[in-house]
């Protein structure tokens, strides 16, 4: 009886691992799809040959390696980072609505970008190309730091952090509107693309940066998987299992801050992915964080990669801001998933 149950449990575990593998393959396929679509109308064979390092024209070489690949990789990594940040936030703040967007991190980053674009205020010593992203990063990190400090002073639990986050979101959004109000037409144009989220300016250094942040934080996330799983049973339970809940929360939020800040500082405000990635992953594999975290990462990457492709193909000849695509296309799909009910 119990052996049979254990076997069944292990079979479910293998099924979940398989699902994670399938998600990974789907994300890779989406990356390829993203690479072969674009306004330049390159033949598929040429694109693939260029990727493989084969003999192609100089123009094709540049389009694939300097334009499409950084954008496609950025989409994948940003999706992964936002979804991982959302998943961990939802767990440590014990709130299914927590994600970088709802907690004001994204709008703070947008505010930082706006300060650089409209007022020309940046960190001294930062190269001009990095000034906007640099400012966005600082503001995003600052927002999360402020949240933690406020939460610590108030001494409250996660619900206090959430309230502060929502307040921060509105404040940043209001200040952003103020800057938009005083901005020149030129700056406004730049800003609009920023607040809607755009992959258009993705370049290799930015891709590397997010890649490094992910590579550093993911092992820590996976190591904390059982602790995070325990926290889903309540704070008292996790503590009585021997988990240092305060420490777990602090370190997780630090990791999440870095992930979210680096993601939004590269591509601007992108909603939905940080919220829906984890929710879709949860519907697929449940809440054991050993599979839930990888599934969230890959779901986020997949969704973002598909959104990147759609942003190029939805309106022929126009590159839509990818944040618009994730919100407009993603949300109905998300609702449909919720209404269909949970699988398990």
């Amino acid at each position: 009886m119990s052996d049979a149950t254990l076997q069944l449990y292990h079979r479910q575990g293998r099924r979940n691992a398989l699902l994670v593998g399938v998600l990974g393959l789907a994300a890779l396929a989406a990356l390829l799809l993203d690479l072969v679509t674009g306004p330049a109308g390159l033949p598929l064979a040429d694109t693939l040959r260029a990727l493989a390092g084969g003999e192609v024209g100089r123009g094709t070489q540049v389009i694939v390696w300097e334009v499409r690949l950084p954008v496609a990789c950025m989409a994948l990594l940003v999706g992964a980072a936002l979804a991982l940040a959302g998943a961990e936030m939802q767990t440590v703040l014990e709130n299914p609505l927590a994600e970088p967007f709802t907690l004001g991190v994204s709008s703070s980053a947008a505010l930082g970008a706006a300060v650089a674009i409209v007022l020309g205020l940046t960190l001294p010593g930062l190269p001009a190309v990095w000034s906007v992203s640099g400012n966005a990063f600082l503001f995003a990190l600052g927002a999360l730091g402020l949240l933690q400090i406020l939460g610590r002073i108030r001494g409250g639990g996660p619900e206090v952090l959430i309230l502060f986050g929502v307040a921060l979101n509105f404040t940043a959004a209001a200040l952003l509107s103020l800057l938009q109000f005083v901005a020149s037409a030129d700056a406004l144009q730049q800003l609009v693309f920023w607040t809607m989220g755009s992959l258009a300016s993705a370049q290799w250094p930015g891709v590397m940066l997010i890649g490094v942040v992910l590579a550093v934080s993911v092992p820590f996330s996976f190591r904390a998987a059982w602790k995070l799983t325990a926290l889903r049973l309540g704070e008292d339970q996790a503590k009585s299992f021997g988990v240092d809940v305060a420490g777990l929360r602090r370190w997780t939020l630090l990791r999440v801050s870095l992930l979210a800040a680096s993601a939004v500082s590269m591509v601007g405000v992108i909603g939905f992915v940080g919220l829906a990635g984890p929710h879709i992953a949860r519907m697929l594999v449940g809440e054991n964080h050993r599979v839930f975290l990888p599934a969230s990462i890959l779901t986020g990457a997949l969704v973002m990669s598909l959104a990147s492709t759609l942003s190029k193909t939805l309106v022929p000849g126009v590159l839509l801001p990818v944040g618009l695509v994730t919100s407009l296309i993603g949300l109905p799909i998300f609702f449909a998933l919720i209404l269909r009910g949970r699988r398990r």
Partner: peptide
Amino acid sequence: FMPQSLPAGSSLVALESVIAALRAG
């Protein structure tokens, strides 16, 4: 420690939750 109640919303399966009690710490 056994609390008054467990949160009702978790989609963890019972066995997983008991394994978590062992492996979290």
